[in-house]
Design a protein around this nucleic acid. Structure first.
Lengths: 241, 241
DNA sequence: GGGAACAAAAAGTCAGACTTTTATGTCACA
DNA sequence: TGTGACATAAAAGTCTGACTTTTTGTTCCC
């Protein structure tokens, strides 16, 4: 899954990109193409191609007479799958996982509602199939199998929404779920309540109940938020203070 | 606003990119770098850099001995601002505008809820300021001024949410709103109800009322959906059939 | 002290030679 | 007739070196 592109420029990118997102070159740092080419032992043309790609991701900006400047993180194309991958592999993985989970909590309920309207019967079948797969792997530390069905399930929902912007978030959700399983506290079996919610969601979509599909998905994503301690700070009942 | 990058490769990109998103080269088409270099009258190195950027956007894939293949639209990085711009400028602008508006309707309410919790007082001030600006320009065909404040308003909401993924959608929302004003049926003055909603939203954020902020934003985005005739098909009251 | 000419630094561009991969066609052999 | 190995060629990939252009910073003169 590591996109080990054969191209020489791609190999450079896989080292230079993470170095930037990691903060190894802080915003404002100036790099020179020639020096980079020497450091990574490639020709200038190859390094130029790599820099062009970084530039298209808004990670750097190249200006004559000054060099290749690292841009502040607010400028980065944070929706670029490659950037997401680099950041998830790096030091601020937790922060990244949180912001992506919040994005999920906004997008998925709406996507599920649309899926209930637009899903084909084949997609409905995929949904129930994966939900049952989740049930089957929900006990006895069969986490890998559970994860596989969980990812597939959400991917189908997003695709079935019929909205291309939602559909393209399938990879992002996959990364989040995978990160949750592999790097988060998930010693014990998945929450049975979550499993049930998925089964009921598949049901709701099949029955074309958009409202219920949306509500159920909202419950699922709220669970995901709670796991990361992204909780609504209770309205601070003004008793003590 | 056209990102007229001085680089020669950027100028090529501004012609070749739209040609692809336009469908001028259908998915599966094979281009050859040398031929493209001749056609656009640049050296191969420049064309190679352009192709590398297109490749990073997943618009094309380059393979030895076969050439540069145009990828199907499902593969494209549809969140890349440049791709969004190209598609909005092209033939399927309406479809693009719809899918982006649906995305808005999912993201903005949640963002507004978060903004109510995290907004600084400076951001609250910006919000009310822009809401009042909208009111001031809501009558007498002062559409440009209205649009300016509308864009600024939503940008502040997204930034104030504190979530970087939301914040980066500011440009997208700006494009959508701008497209709505310039290319959609908007002869007459903006809907007074929408203006009021913005004023009340600024109020809700200032008062830290997350629930109300979210609900108000939901009303705003529902209005945007209705303008594009993306309406809930009513549950087909089973009377006749 | 301020403005204009100048010098240098770095990216940008180009052309050409060479390498590597790989799809395809050919030919012999079963 | 089919199948495998091998040869061929086409296209991307890589490298190098020379040249151009832009931009910044300095210096020098008024």
């Amino acid at each position: 899954m590591t996109t080990q592109g054969g191209g020489l420029h791609a190999r450079v990118l896989e080292r230079l990109g993470p170095a930037i997102t990691e903060g190894q070159y802080p915003a404002g740092s100036v790099l020179r193409t020639d020096e980079l080419a020497q450091r990574y032992e490639v020709s200038r043309s190859v390094m130029r191609e790599a820099v062009r790609v970084l530039e298209s991701m808004h990670l750097v900006a190249s200006r004559r007479r000054v060099g290749v400047t690292v841009l502040p993180a607010e400028e980065w194309n944070v929706y670029d799958p490659q950037v997401i991958r680099w950041r998830l592999a790096g030091a601020d993985r937790p922060r990244q996982l949180r912001s992506l989970t919040v994005l999920r909590s906004a997008v998925e309920p709406v996507a599920a509602g649309l899926a209930a309207r637009h899903a084909t019967s084949a997609q409905c079948a995929e949904l129930t199939e994966n939900a049952l797969g989740m049930v089957a792997h929900s006990r006895g530390h069969r986490l890998e199998g559970y994860l596989r069905h969980d990812i597939a399930f959400h991917r189908v929902v997003l695709r079935a929404s019929g909205n291309e912007m939602f559909a393209r978030l399938g990879d992002v959700v996959a990364e989040v779920l995978s990160g949750r399983t592999h790097h988060q506290v998930m010693f014990h079996d998945p929450d049975p309540a979550a499993v049930t919610l998925h089964v009921r969601l598949a049901e709701a979509v099949r029955e074309r109940d958009a409202g219920r599909a949306e509500a159920l998905t909202r419950e699922i994503t709220i669970g995901a938020l709670q796991e990361l301690d992204i909780l609504d700070p209770p309205p601070a009942a003004p008793a003590g203070s």
